[in-house]
Design a protein around this nucleic acid. Structure first.
Lengths: 120, 120
DNA sequence: GAATCATATTCCCATATAGGCATGTGTCAA
DNA sequence: TTGACACATGCCTATATGGGAATATGATTC
């Protein structure tokens, strides 16, 4: 029985998983190809358990896949898990895109004209 | 003096702020124009304090601006705060974009050819 | 000034971390 | 079999929630 839902678990979805900067860094590294855990730990200056825990979260939301290679476990990026984030944030692209900003200027001018027409 | 850093505060950056679904919904509503708090509460089926708290977080990361209008406080979207998310996630677009997927197929074929050449 | 409306803040609680550290598990080599 | 190596997991602690409820603040109207 769930009693209280403080903050959603990091494993709830991609949004919560990548809120942690270290996990974004891990994904950025894996974008260059699959890597074993110790590689990631060394490159990021983290302890091995830290990396393993972060990878567990990333696995839970499907952002990485694993493959056994001898004693090593090679982690590989699975970018599909990030698509919901892309889809959501893309709606706001007009807020900073120059292309859209110019359109906004035009719309503002039209609005001003309407306002003047209404006053007359 | 900071003793332990469990999970980063929701007000740390946009990534942490929008990890909460309710806050994304609020931004989605504000994308349609500025709105008072009670409006948002009614549309989302939340209590007024809940909405005020979420808005406080969104304000902290610069995702919304406020304007006083009599007794009401009109909140307005500021999409610029979401640009870091867009910039980060866009790097992974090739993971699901058909356009890039076709490119991947070509690259795979080239890799296979190299492999066969190496064996001969 | 009093009552009312709109919003913000505070208090309390249960929860899920992230870090540090120790330890368990599985694989390879001698 | 025994080490040694690579990785995963468990335990402990302090922290920052998010929800609910009550209350404080601020502006408007009577």
């Amino acid at each position: 029985m769930i009693r209280a839902v403080a903050r959603a678990a990091t494993t709830t979805d991609a949004f919560n998983a990548v809120a942690e900067p270290r996990r974004r860094q891990i994904l950025d590294l894996l974008a260059g190809g699959e890597r074993p855990v110790n590689d990631l730990a060394r490159l990021l200056g983290l302890t091995q358990p830290q990396v393993s825990k972060h990878l567990r979260v990333l696995r839970a939301v499907g952002a990485v896949d694993v493959r056994d290679e001898g004693r090593q476990r090679l982690y590989r990026l699975n970018g599909h898990a990030l698509k919901p984030i892309y889809d959501w944030v893309t709606k706001y692209e007009r807020s900073w895109s120059e292309r859209f900003e110019r359109l906004d200027v035009v719309l503002e001018e039209l609005k001003d004209e309407e306002r003047r027409d209404g006053e007359s």
